[in-house]
Design a protein around this nucleic acid. Structure first.
Length: 345
DNA sequence: TCTACACTCCAAACACAC
DNA sequence: CATAGTGTGTTTGGAGTG
């Protein structure tokens, strides 16, 4: 019996959930995000494949989505409902005997298993999730989590047939000529830095000198990027529940705040929401951070350690307002956020 | 007492993922 | 022109300490 990592990823999860509630939307371009009003400041949470054909992607401003796809159906995000459906999916995964499930978000999870037929397990998972939730998913199979995660892309509708295996055996064949940005952990900024050094493809990254990259990109990140290029990653799926390090709330205002009294009032409101959350969890906060995004989009965070950990709402509000005083600019504010950090360890 | 240095902690910026 | 919300990890630079 061999050790395998499977990566399960729901297909167009949020859009699919909405279409389940409103079957008449099937086959139409559906865009979910914000309050469902494409004239507001908000971004796309998920677009159906029909909307994606018009260039609508997650993270795109709703306004832009409406321009690219004027005929799309715009729906508000209903996060509590997605959480419920997600729980149902994860419970289905945990129902398989002798597997370890590591949840990575509403719509994806890693499954660790000992088996000699990982494809059979993958198909079993797809069938079970479909039967229980009517949702389709794609499954990547790998000899570690990185390869399983990347494999899923080749299993997705339009690219594959629902299951794909990526291991040391086919890593080069599949990945060598792809851009470094195809790797999990390399975003646009890092891809750009690598390109500046003449590293454009996965193969070039795999062949790079870790020490040289360490000097340039950091002692931990540089060598890690080379490992990514080689397809090396964590091979053990962890099933132990995650303990959050922080809780936060932030909000973008439809109209910029121009008065500092308004800013103070909104920070207090956010701090109370955070206080409610951590009070419900019964975990005192050790540190409070305030985030301010001035118009048009420059963003800053300031923070302070509390005298003693607390969950007292008024102490947290006062602390957040204190931190806010570290900002001296009075430019118009488009976003405010408050974060509570729990004691380390 | 002053300076250099190693070390740790903290705060902020930054990058990334979902 | 437009760019959410939530959360994590790394790097960097300054403050404190011995």
């Amino acid at each position: 019996m061999a050790s395998w990592v499977l990566h399960v990823d729901l297909d167009q999860f949020i859009a699919a959930v909405e279409i389940l509630r409103r079957p008449e939307l099937a086959g139409l371009p559906v865009v979910v995000g914000g309050k469902g009003d494409p004239t507001q400041r908000a971004v796309v949470a998920t677009a159906s494949y029909e909307a994606r054909a018009h260039g609508v992607r997650s993270g795109l401003p709703l306004r832009t989505a409406a321009k690219r796809c004027p005929d799309a159906v715009f729906l508000p995000a209903d996060n509590p409902h997605y959480e419920e459906v997600s729980e149902e999916v994860m419970a289905t995964l945990r129902g398989f005997p002798d597997v370890v499930v590591e949840v990575m978000g509403w719509d994806e999870a890693f499954v660790g298993a000992q088996t000699d037929q990982p494809e059979a397990l993958a198909r079993g998972i797809r069938a079970a999730v479909l039967a229980r939730t009517r949702l389709s998913c794609s499954v990547g199979i790998g000899d570690n989590m990185l390869r399983a995660k990347l494999a899923t892309e080749f299993a997705k509708p339009g690219a594959g047939d629902g299951v794909f295996r990526l291991t040391a055996s086919n890593w080069e064949e599949v990945m060598a000529h792809r851009p470094t940005s195809a790797l999990w952990g390399i975003g646009t900024k890092t891809a750009r830095k690598l390109a500046d050094r003449g590293i454009h493809t996965v193969a070039e990254l795999a062949a790079a000198d870790p020490a040289a990259l360490a000097a340039d990109l950091g002692p931990a990140l540089g060598p890690w990027y080379v490992q990514l290029g080689r397809g090396i990653g964590r091979a053990t799926v962890e099933g132990t529940p995650w303990v959050p390090r922080s809780r936060s709330h932030e909000t973008t205002f439809q109209e910029n705040l121009t008065g500092w009294d308004d800013v103070r009032a909104e920070v207090a409101t956010l701090a109370r929401r955070v206080a409610t959350d951590i009070g419900d969890e019964g975990r005192p906060a050790a540190r409070v951070a305030v985030k301010v995004r001035f118009a048009p989009f420059s963003t800053y965070t300031r923070s302070a350690t509390l005298d003693a950990p607390t969950q007292e709402p008024e102490v947290l509000v006062a602390a957040a307002l204190d931190v806010l005083e570290k900002f001296t600019s009075r430019r118009p504010v488009r976003l405010l956020g408050v974060r509570a950090e729990f004691p380390r360890e």
